[in-house]
Design a protein around this nucleic acid. Sequence first.
DNA 1: CAAGAATTTAAACACTTGTTTAAAACAGTT
DNA 2: AACTGTTTTAAACAAGTGTTTAAATTCTTG
Lengths: 214, 214
Amino acid sequence: MFNFGPEMTKTPKDSSTEEKIKEAARRVFMAKGFDGCSSREIAREAGMNVALVNYYFRSKSQLFQLIFRSTLEDFLLSMMDIFESDMPLENKVRIFIEREYEFLSRHPEMPVFIMSEIRREDACEINNMNMVERIAATGVFDEALKAQEEGRMRKIDIISTMIIMMANCQFPFLASPLIKGMHKLTDEQFEQQLLLHKQYVTEMMMGYLFPVKQ
Amino acid sequence: MFNFGPEMTKTPKDSSTEEKIKEAARRVFMAKGFDGCSSREIAREAGMNVALVNYYFRSKSQLFQLIFRSTLEDFLLSMMDIFESDMPLENKVRIFIEREYEFLSRHPEMPVFIMSEIRREDACEINNMNMVERIAATGVFDEALKAQEEGRMRKIDIISTMIIMMANCQFPFLASPLIKGMHKLTDEQFEQQLLLHKQYVTEMMMGYLFPVKQ
DNA sequence: CAAGAATTTAAACACTTGTTTAAAACAGTT
DNA sequence: AACTGTTTTAAACAAGTGTTTAAATTCTTG
């Protein structure tokens, strides 16, 4: 009689068209944003019928929520996995920067997608993600506190420390069209600049957060 | 016979409705982006008829180009006016940061507007703005080069220097919804954090760009 | 194979989009 | 007052929007 959609029944092979639509949506949303694309464009990108988008995900908005949430999750995890290892804090920070540049080189559109789409009411689940709590659970904040008490680390509150690290890692990717446009850089020149920049900001942040005594 | 629109005739009182529409468009575009709003919404915000938008600006796209270009210009000028004064380079950098935070506190949505909308083909006039050339004309790059030769300034290429300064000034505003969401900050708490952060990044950048000899 | 459920399709729904049209209202000049 | 050109309006245009419907197809299982 009634059709409750696929979520209720969960076919064994985990419906590859569902996955195809999700991946298409991820690409299109990332490139153009929620308002910049249509359901039909997503369906076309996936090689599917329009109605399937709503058949599997009920609405464009719910599909977007799904994509945005999982993107934010990837984004968070990329920052977290370093902190769980056991090495000196100084090394963690150094490797964090390294990994972050590597991750963002593979997903250069991610920061601008997050920063621009986070304003939508569709995307208000940041509060429910417990991002800071989960990072705190790695123990890295305690390490920082301890390092500060021992005088190895500069006494800066943790929020500013995070902003500094995120800013100097993410901004070059956030502003890449502006930077390329301003300095008339080709893609290859920009990539070269990124490598150089990573070294500078590593030097700068390490020198600031972990000053040598004298 | 034909109606060429108001640009051809330029009434003396400089048509205040034209200005009203432009200001409404600026507000709406800034808040929602080009794709996130309609011509009718802009007209409504301006208290005008829809047709007037196209009567004065020919199309939504041309109106957007106008707004985006002038925003980019404001953005550039806010960075430039410091460099033209005559004071030691160190002071210029210090005051640049101060002014940039002050400017962005008054226009907090500007960075995310620029970074997200710059991808549009509507907005491809960055190349024609000669941003770097105009900054170079202030002589600040030459000053930096001289300071580097004299050993007062660290030897970093000018592009990375600019990215570092832009990143640490603009990122907190770019990521403000994310930061507020992550750390569950109220608007007042965030403003407090901004003040603190400005001090930290000033200290960090000054220390890095102008290291004390030993 | 046949029955029933799950998937896919084309078509339609009501509504919004950017833009244009043609008439109306306004202004200024003689 | 009548004619001028300019500004404003309501209405219409075709095209595109998210979403739904109901029929067609495919798949699964008895």
